[in-house]
Amino acid sequence: MAEFNPPLLGINNAVNPDKQPSLTTDYMDNVWPIDVLEKRIRLGQRPGVDKAFDGQIGNASNPIVAVCVVTTVD
């Protein structure tokens, strides 16, 4: 019985598939090396994106062009 080697090290298209480095591939999308279930190093679907705040900045579908954090004394 042999263990297969899924592409834990991600994508590599520097060489032809015949010489593909171990644990890499030329074909993947939205798969990350840390899974979202237990946060371990194993291949799994990436985390989804979700809203951090409910409202739209500017109340319109226009890009947010800059963000920062400001800290003030209480």
Partner: peptide, 21 residues
């Protein structure tokens, strides 16, 4: 890590999110 996105929403990666908002 908060991302300013194209449609005016601020988004984050969320481990419990199985879809994309």
């Amino acid at each position: 890590m908060i991302m300013g996105c194209n449609d005016g929403y601020l988004r984050i990666f969320k481990d419990s999110a199985k879809d994309d908002d």
